[in-house]
Amino acid sequence: MPHYDALSKAVRDARTALLFSQRKVAELAGVSLSLVQAMETGEERSYQPAKKRQIEDALQRPRGWIDQILRDGYSPGDLPRRGEIQADLTPRERIARMEPTEVREIAKLIIEATGNSEAALDWVEAANQIRQESTESAKTDRRQGA
């Protein structure tokens, strides 16, 4: 019998280790938010192989990880702790993974520190461009089967 409860915990742990929201995982994977939510709630269903691969890629897990968990279960020690995966990222990669609320919070800090709203607007524009390029690159990689 598949371990849907283990998959629920594993997907949630992988997502939070990356500091991602469910919406961010769905966006990076090119799947619906409801699919990510179904996995995280342990919904018992047959997940399409391509969708599983896309979610594994978004969560930076090896191919076959979801099937292995469904088959063998999951131990929380199998993943890095919250935020550990981000330690090896370049600044550009960190920006690409930011949520819109984080981008806005940094803009507020720029205004507080410099009093320069123009610089804050430049930051938001640059960050959004990096995030968009990252999303488009992930979609291209998925289409090419990378």
Score class of each variant (00 low, 15 high):
R45W: 04
S34C: 07
A146W: 12
V11E: 00
L28G: 01
S8L: 05
D88K: 11
K52N: 03
E43R: 03
D88N: 12
V124L: 05
Q37L: 07
Q144W: 10
H3M: 05
W65I: 07
L79C: 08
E105P: 08
L121H: 11
D88G: 14
M39Q: 03
I130F: 05
G30E: 06
S46M: 04
S32Y: 06
G145C: 00
D141C: 09
A119G: 04
E40W: 05
D57G: 10
R82E: 15
P76C: 00
E27M: 12
F20V: 02
I55L: 04
L79T: 05
D72Q: 06
G64A: 13
R92T: 13
M39E: 06
L28W: 01
A119D: 03
D72N: 08
I85N: 10
Y74P: 03
E40P: 06
T140K: 13
R143F: 07
D57E: 12
Q144N: 10
R12Y: 14
N116H: 14
K139Y: 09
S8R: 03
R61A: 11
P91K: 07
E44H: 03
I69F: 02
G42L: 05
E40F: 04
T135N: 12
E27W: 09
F20H: 02
L89G: 10
A87V: 10
M98N: 06
V11L: 01
I110R: 06
M98V: 09
D78L: 00
E84H: 15
R45H: 05
A29M: 06
I106H: 12
A113F: 14
D67Q: 03
K139G: 04
E40I: 02
L109A: 15
E44R: 03
I55M: 09
D78P: 06
G73P: 05
D67H: 08
N128L: 07
S75H: 14
E43S: 05
L89H: 12
S21G: 14
A38K: 07
K24R: 15
E125D: 08
Q86L: 15
S8E: 08
M39C: 06
Q48N: 09
Y74A: 02
G42W: 04
Y74I: 06
L59N: 00
T16Q: 10
L19S: 14
K9N: 06
E136C: 04
S32A: 06
R92P: 05
G77V: 10
R94G: 10
D88R: 11
S137N: 15
E93T: 07
K139C: 02
E136K: 15
Y74S: 07
S117T: 13
E99S: 11
K51M: 12
R45Y: 03
P2S: 02
P62Q: 05
Q60T: 12
P80R: 11
M98H: 08
P100S: 12
R63T: 01
I106V: 15
E93W: 13
Q37V: 00
R104E: 15
K108C: 12
E44L: 00
I110K: 02
Y74C: 05
T16E: 12
A26E: 03
K24C: 10
A17E: 13
Q132W: 14
L19G: 13
G42H: 03
E136N: 15
G83M: 09
V31Q: 05
R81I: 11
S34Q: 11
